[in-house]
């Protein structure tokens, strides 16, 4: 399950750099997340950074708080452990990149954070809500309210205008049609697509389509935007543009951005990089922008 799709691209691209980097920095891979953190040279700066976020945020709850998350699948009778005990905290307003090779579990982690999936064990709090306490409808509501998704393949509805695509999350929030359209218009303007409201995805470039997708992620005013390989299907120029929008979103609006990527230069835009390998957090490094 975790080996197909976007992650398959990892093998083709430059994940070797991450692997060697992770490998050299954390020789004791088997020691679990805690071992990574202590072995990590950036440990000191991490506590510092989270401290500073905590100060600016006051008593704010974490966007994500995961304790010992595991996720196992049964694939044709064989149990596959995609995540083997991940603990992490992502605060509101952070800009985080999740890196890892194919099959590392980074997409599974992303799905758990996005409430598209439930952990096999462990605790996950999203905006302070323990997802284990939520039923299907509650989980859907959390996805709708707290999280905005940006996918590698855009996932726009092909026969629907940009405006309608962007307004879609509000449909499930029960927002009336005129308000939906107004908010979608504003979100599209925010990503520089005010002139493309009635265009269909097929009439737009890849970069524009991804910007529509970002507008859709934004329209519901989420605390976090989860972006799964957002530049994976774009050329470098469009990729930079999209990353610029995400960075601006984070800086100006204070929306936390969590992106899964295998591209080093994309990951370098983030102030924090979480390296995932074999279902565990291998390295959690921070850098001040």
């Amino acid at each position: 399950m975790t080996t197909d799709g976007p992650e398959a691209r990892d093998t083709a691209g430059g994940p070797e750099a991450h692997r060697t980097a992770g490998g050299t920095e954390t020789p004791g891979t088997a020691g679990g997340p805690e071992a990574h953190r202590t072995a990590d040279g950036a440990q000191a700066s991490e506590t510092e950074a989270s401290g500073s976020v905590g100060e600016t945020a006051g008593a704010r709850v974490a966007a994500f708080e995961a304790v010992d998350l595991t996720r196992s699948y049964r694939l044709e009778g064989v149990s596959v452990d995609a995540l083997r005990g991940v603990s992490l905290r992502i605060d509101q307003g952070e800009f985080v990149a999740i890196l890892g090779p194919s099959g590392s579990g980074k997409s599974t982690l992303m799905h758990l954070l996005g409430c598209l999936d439930r952990p096999t064990s462990g605790t996950l709090r999203v905006n302070g809500t323990d997802v284990a306490t939520l039923d299907d409808a509650g989980l859907a509501e959390l996805r709708n309210q707290a999280v905005g998704f940006v996918f590698q393949s855009f996932h726009l509805l092909g026969r629907t205008s940009a405006l309608e695509n962007v307004a879609l999350p509000l449909v499930y929030r029960g927002v009336g049609r005129s308000e939906r359209r107004e908010r979608a218009r504003r979100a599209l303007s925010a990503v520089g697509l005010a002139h493309r409201l009635d265009h269909r995805p097929s009439q737009m470039s890849g970069g524009e389509q991804q910007r529509v997708a970002i507008a859709r992620a934004l329209v519901g005013d989420p605390k976090v935007v989860l972006a799964d390989e957002p530049t994976g299907n774009l050329d470098s120029r469009n990729g930079q543009e999209v990353m610029g929008i995400l960075a601006e979103l984070n800086a100006v609006r204070g929306v936390a951005v969590v992106l899964v990527t295998h591209e080093r230069e994309v990951a370098d835009l983030a102030r924090r990089r979480i390296h995932v390998r074999d279902g565990l957090v291998e390295l959690d490094e921070r850098s001040g922008p």
Binding site: G114, D136, A137, A140, N144, Y172
Partner: peptide, 10 residues
């Protein structure tokens, strides 16, 4: 899948 990701309930 997309609709569910965007908050559609069952």
């Amino acid at each position: 899948g997309l609709r569910k990701a965007l908050g559609a309930r069952q």
